[in-house]
Each structure stands twice: as C-alpha cells, then as structure tokens.
Design a protein around this nucleic acid. Structure first.
Lengths: 206, 206, 206, 206
DNA sequence: TATGAATGAGATTTCATTCAT
DNA sequence: AATGAATGAAATCTCATTCAT
C-alpha cells in the first residue's frame, strides 16, 4: 500500500470512527455531515469522496459493528473450549451477542432494528471491506455446519435473527414488556424449538 | 361539537389522509411538510399545531393503520363464523394481517419495521382517538382470552408480534430469503410452538 | 361615563401604556401584539377592538408623546414668565423639545423620524382623543400668533419642524456629525434665518 | 475573477435588481423574502448568504439608489458646462435631485426618509461596492471644495441634506403643505442662507 | 485528491389577524 | 364586548450536496 493509499485509508477510518462516536452519542439524525467532516478534520467535500451520503456511511457502520458482534461471539465460543452441538453453539453465540448489546446500549440504539437478517445479504453484496469479510465466513460456516441435517437453513437463520433482533431492542432499552433477563428463557426456548423443527424431517402440523 | 371543532377535526383528518397518500406514494423522506400542508389546503403553521413534526404525524399514521390491520383481521374472524380455539384464532388473525400486507405493499413499506409490539404500548398511552380505541380492546381481549391458562401472555404476544412483523417485511417486499407463501409454514409452526410453550405449565429446558 | 365605558377606557389606556413601555424597551418590531396584549392583561382579540393593528397603536403613541413634548415645552415657556417675541418663543420651545429628547433617548428612538410636520396633520385629522387635543391648540395658536406679519406660516413651521426633527435624531443618538450641543448654534441660527425670511415682505433672491 | 465569482456577483446583482423592482412596485412590507428569492431564481437560503435580512437588502438598495441620484446630478452639472460658484453648484445639484425624485415617485417612496446624511456615513463604512464608490468621491470633493473658506462643512452638508430630504418627501408625494414647486423658493432661500452663514467668519447671534 | 464556499430545499418558528364562542 | 385557539403567511435556520479551484 503506497503512502497515498495509506493516507486515503486513514481519512476513511477517521471518518468512520468519528461518525460512530457522534452517531452513538447524538443520534444519526442530529449528526450532520458537517459535524462528521469537521470532527474528523477533513473538508465537507472530502466526505463525499468516501461515502455516497450520510446513510451510506451509517449502513457501513451498522454492518461493521454488527459483524463485530458476531465475531466477538465466535471468538468467545472458541475461547470457551466447550464441545457443543449445533443448537448449543447457536444459543451460545446469541447469548453472547445479547450480552454485548446489553452492555453497550448506545450501540444497540445505533444498530436499532437493523441488526437483521438483511445485514447478511447487504454485507454479502456491497462494500465488503477487509473488516467485514470474515463476518461472512462465520455466516457461511454456520450454514455449512447446519447443512445436510438441517432443513432450509437460511429460513431458520432468518427467523432466528429477526426474532432476536426485534425483541432485544425493546427488552434491553425499555425493559418492555420484560427485562432481557426475564425474556431470555422464553427466547431461548423458542429458538430451540425453531432449530428442532428444522432438524426434524419435515414441517409438520400444517 | 361546535362549528370550530368540526372544522378542526376536518383539518386534522385532511392532514392525516393527505399525508398517508403522500407517504405511501413518494415515501416519508421524499414528502415534505410543505407538500402535506399544501395538499391538505392548510398553512404550514397549521401543520405544526396538530403535529410536533413530520415524524409525529408518521407515528400517528403507523398506529392508525396498524390498528386497522388488526381490526380488519378481527372482523374477518368474526365474519367467518368459525368456532376456533385460542391458537387457531391467533393464526387466523396473523394470516389475515399478512395477507392484507401482501395485498398492500405500499402500506407495508410505510409501516416498515414499526408494526411492532411497541405499537400496542404507544396506542395505549398516547393520542388514542376514537379510531384507535377499539384496537386496544382487541389486544386486551386477546390477553384476557389467554389469561388463566396462558403463562406470561404479554411476553408471548410480544414475541409473536415481533417475529411476524420483522420477517414479513423482507419476505413480502423482497421475497428474501423466501416468498411469503414459502415462509408461512415455518412461521406458523413457530407461532404454534410459542403458544404451546406458554400454555404448558412452565418454561422448561432452562 | 358609565362603568362599562370607564372599563373600556381603562383597557385602552392599559394597552397604550404597556405598549409604550415595550416599544421603547425592545423596539417596535421586536414587540409582538401578543406581548402587548399579554402584558396588558387582555386577550389578543381584545387588542383589535381598540386598534386597527400594531402600527395604528404605534401612530397613536407617537402622536401622544409628540404632543406631550410640545405641551411640556409650552408649559415651560409659560412658567418661565419671560416676555419673548415670536422668534424667541419658537427657539425656546425648540430648545425645550431638544432637551427633552436628549434626556429621553428611548423616546427619541421610538418617535424616530416621525416627529415631523406630518404629525400636526395627523393629529388634526385622526383619533384626536382628549389627550392630544390641546396639542392642536398650541399649533393653531402659534400659527395665529404669527399670522398677519408672517408670510406662509405653514411652510415656515413645516421647514423648521422637519429640519429639527431630522437633524436631532443623528446628533443626539449618534453625535453625528457633531453632538447636540455643538449642533445647536448652527441649528438655531438657521431657524432664526428661516423666521426672518418669512417675516420679510417677500421671498427674495429667486 | 473566476467562474465562481462571476456567478456569485450575478446572483447578488439579480437579487438587488429583482428586489428593487418589487420594493418599488409593491412596497417593502408587502414584498417577502420568498418573492425576492423566487423572482431572482435563487433559493431562500442563498438570499441569507448575501443579506442579513430584508432590511439589510433594503438599506443596500437605498444607499445604491441614493448615490445614483447624486451621481446623476453631478453628471448633469458637468454636462451643463456652466461656470458656477460653490453655492450655485450646491443648488444645481439639489435641484437636480429634487427633480429626479419628482419624476420617480416610486423611488422617493422607497428611499422615504432615508435619503439622509447618514447615507454618506454608511456608504463610507460598509459594503462599498464599485457602484457606490464614486459617490463618496463626489461627497469628498464637495467637502474639499468647500474647505478653507467654509466653516464646519460637514455640519453644513448635514443640515442641508436633512432639510431637503425630510421636506421633499411630503411636498412631492402629498403636496403638503405645498407642492414641490411652491416649496422650492423657500427651500433654496434657506439653503442659500445656511451656506452664507457657514461662509461668514463665525456663527453669530448666539 | 481535497476543499469549503455556495446553493437551495425544506424544516421550524414567529406572529399578525380572524372567528366561533 | 372579550377571548384565545386557530390560521397561514412569511421569516429564519439547518443542512445535505455540488462545484470551481
């Protein structure tokens, strides 16, 4: 990487880091492109050399920090040294992610309802920089892991992802209808049921 | 109701109807307060008398049209004349709502991810105009209906609502990861499981 | 005067007094009708029962306080007990008015360039309430006083009034191009000359 | 001058020209910033980039068109080829200005009472664009011209300017108390007297 | 590439005035 | 007559985005 490219990368990183700080502090709407550029020490015009607009930047940050959640969870799973089956792994990872979000509510507010299955797809198709790449690995591995003995793994992951992300938002931030800790048993039970259904030979009762 | 109040109500209705038309046609962001006020035939200042800002109006409309979905579903259930148990009723209502959204994708785009359990709470606490009132009745009746033999009915409803609303968005609008019709069996199976778990004596496996 | 009329008059007076206080404190533009009505303890609608609009009220106040300047000056002339000829009387009155304005710059700012000959005409034609009535007496007496031996007394008064009012504004408020005290000799000299010319048989040199 | 600056100047000129047209046609109050910006083909925000508010623009226009009056008068004096002394020059210029205003009453209404000595000062200190520059030359030359043999030339010019501007308004627009033609002899006599007094060795009679 | 002044769309606020009570 | 909520015109401000340098 040449000096110029290093510099270029540095500017982009500076913008990403600065914007994340502002977004999680003041909120996305209340943060102007001016704020970001000024805080990052670059001109306003420069911002547009790296990002299409504020929402492009926001999406990149959501993807980046979502993937970090997964990678951290995967690393914890690795570090635990536990020998777990597929379902146990899933629950382990989900539990880690929920705990991370519970400990970093600014991040949860920022990611908001966007920690969804769509992120996987977006991450797959657009702007996959170095950072976010291994995130896809994790996803693919999870799918591969499940393959063979799991019926429609994508649908399963989709349902689980959406269920977790949409319920945790309200539970963590507002303790509505119950706190995260109170919700967890019900949530994990449902996830367990969803996985079980997808491991059974076919969809029943329908 | 005096002349003034009739007129006032008419203005507010005009703003709501006009805004809904514009929001579902052009999208919320592309619709300006000017557009709305002008189309509704009132001054911009008047707009701010009825609504805090564009997003207040949007929330009111989301609540209004969400509740309409539920009420329509409830009416269909009534009209069907079927004798169904609680779980069957739930599935019937959910199926109706999903079909309504599938038939009116502009509405789904508008409601977006906001068709959530939070709506129940908001509808309960704020701006409960005549329109939205019976919506709460339905909810309360569902809860009451479930009471006694259902463990933590609020948590159950919460989980079901969030699961449906977040999955249907992607399935209906983008057929991702699968179309609504393909998703339904899995979805209904999960809902059925969630209800079953809450009808059992206690949360197990935890 | 019946109770109702007394009350009515009281409200009008309250509005006038309150408005004068606000106008001279915050300026006319920065004072809203709401401010005035609220400070006077009446409803906003009530304001419009007494005044056509803010500028009607302003004009009434300018007339009222302008006339007060003249009446005070006339009273001082009376009180001085001096035996003065017409020209000396004029200078005496003018000097008194300039001193009053110098001592009350908020009033000068308020009256601004409106302390003009036009005031005489306005006072004559419109809204001549009890208060402003004797102001016209003074004016008429000055004209009558001058009559016979003064050529075109109205033109003379007009020129003098305009010269004083437009020069004193800049001299008192900004000491531009010179302070009031420095300006006075030149001003009084010119006034003296104007009067002299109008007391001569005819306009010469033209 | 780069492309940007040319464009910028064009925008400002467009705003000035458009605003002048609207101000003299509909009046200042009845002309909104929206009107001006829209007619000039620029956004409202752009307006506020060039002018603090409507009154800033108005002041700029008053200065600009006032100075034009003086420059036109000076040009006419030059063109006349007459050899006149200082007093005759002053009267010539004043007569030209009064005639210009009489012929363009919309302009007089616009300038209103603001054709005052203060204009000289403002023109001197602020926003002296190419246009208004030579106006100061005229003024300075008049002062220089008078220097040596004229006592306090600034005070003299001040008094004359204020006398003319405040009297002509009423005389031209309302023929009150007399028409411009009837007023002129008295006015010019007074001006002549003022100049004479300032050419004498000292202020007398005081 | 980098910049930030310039732009204009649009949000929001202010406020004079009207009008049903 | 008295009121103040309602109205809408217009002022002002904010800010994303463009563009000449």
């Amino acid at each position: 990487m040449g000096k110029l490219e290093v510099n270029k990368k540095a500017k982009e990183d500076s913008l990403l880091v600065t914007a994340y700080k502002l977004f999680t502090t003041k909120g996305v709407t209340a943060t102007s492109v001016s704020d970001i550029a000024h805080s990052a020490g670059v001109g306003k015009g420069t911002f547009y050399l790296y990002f299409k607009d504020k929402y492009d930047l926001k999406n990149r940050l959501v993807a980046k920090h979502s993937s970090r959640l997964f990678r951290t969870a995967a690393a914890e799973l690795e570090a635990s040294g536990k020998k777990l089956d597929f379902k146990e792994k899933m629950i382990f990872i989900i539990d880690s992610i929920l705990n991370q979000l519970n400990d970093n509510q600014a991040l949860l507010t920022f990611i908001s309802k966007n920690l969804s299955w769509g992120i996987f797809k977006n991450a797959l198709t657009s702007h996959t920089q170095a950072d976010e790449l291994d995130f896809m690995d994790i996803y693919n591995q999870m799918i591969a892991d499940a393959h063979g003995h799991i019926n429609e793994p994508e649908v399963m992951i989709f349902m689980i992802t959406e269920l977790i992300s949409s319920t945790c938002y309200s539970a963590i931030l507002y303790k509505e209808p119950v706190s995260l800790e109170e919700l967890k048993p019900y949530l994990y039970q449902s996830i367990s049921d969803i996985i079980d259904r997808h491991m059974a030979d076919e969809v029943s009762g329908n």
